[in-house]
């Protein structure tokens, strides 16, 4: 069973069982492959180099749209224009955090620097956002229903399995954020 993250003299420490590390690795990998931009044949290499993506579109997948939202509520044109300049680097930053978190899973005992912790927190958050879309969590009542699912013995279908995974990542992120808050307090 995983242990909650704790802040101490050596930074933020955590402990995960092998099966939990495998689970997290596959979740991180899934979100990475969602975020990886498609290779395009006729792409202008210079534009790609400066992060410009003239073909960027608002994603059709709900989960991806939540990870890469429009910057303006009621102006799709302006949002699209903004997306062309920013989405590629946003994707790359998210992928970077997910890969960094996945890398640290090679060790049983986690010791996280402040940067590692930030990567972990955003990686877990992105995983939870994707799982929440798959679980159709639209409001607080939906979220409460999913929280009721706590017993792995009851996992009999994909939905209940996803709910358990969601609750595990929620618990893990909450414990990590508490440890990060303690480290923030300690530094002030």
């Amino acid at each position: 069973m995983a242990k909650a993250f704790k802040y101490g003299l050596k930074g933020i420490r955590g402990h995960l069982e092998p099966a939990e590390r495998e689970l997290l690795r596959s979740l991180f990998d899934d979100v990475i492959s969602m975020l990886e931009p498609e290779e395009r044949a006729n792409e202008d290499p210079l534009a790609a180099l400066v992060g410009l993506d003239t073909d960027a579109r608002e994603p059709s997948d709900r989960a991806l749209r939540r990870l890469l939202p429009n910057v303006m509520k009621n102006d799709d044109d302006a949002s699209l224009e903004f997306r062309r300049y920013t989405e590629r680097s946003l994707r790359e930053n998210k992928i970077g955090a997910l890969k960094a978190a996945a890398l640290s899973l090679d060790r049983e005992h986690l010791v996280l620097t402040p940067d590692d912790a930030r990567h972990w927190a955003t990686a877990l958050n992105d995983v939870r956002l994707v799982l929440a879309e798959r679980l159709d969590i639209r409001d607080d009542a939906d979220a409460d229903n999913v929280h009721l699912m706590q017993d792995w013995a009851q996992a009999e279908d994909v939905e209940s399995y996803l709910a358990l995974v969601y609750n595990f990542t929620t618990w893990l992120q909450e414990s990590l954020v508490q440890a990060m808050v303690h480290s923030l307090d300690a530094r002030r």
Binding site: K73, N125, A143, Q173, E174, V177, V181
Partner: peptide, 20 residues
């Protein structure tokens, strides 16, 4: 800059992001 509610993000995390 407007932040919108959603049922997923942890209250502790949102507050932490605003602080840090």
């Amino acid at each position: 800059l407007v932040i919108w509610n959603d049922p997923v993000n942890l209250m502790s995390y949102v507050s932490f992001v605003f602080r840090s």
